[in-house]
Amino acid sequence: MTAVCPECEGPIRLAEDLMEGEIIPCGDCGAELEVLSVTPLKLGLAPEVQEDWGE
């Protein structure tokens, strides 16, 4: 399975058992992408990392 990076439009190879919510790296631009849906396949920029106080 292949897709196109929404950031750099580079090709991305994907595993067959991909699941919604996974975060995958783009090998070309390094962007972290979230699998927004599997059918149809849709990728978007991964959500921002949150800051949290404490341990």
Partner: peptide, 18 residues
């Protein structure tokens, strides 16, 4: 991420100040 999704949640990714 898969397990949290299967349990009905949306994974949150955290950077901690501690």
């Amino acid at each position: 991420a898969r397990a949290i999704r299967r349990a009905g949640g949306m994974p949150r990714y955290l950077l901690k100040t501690g």
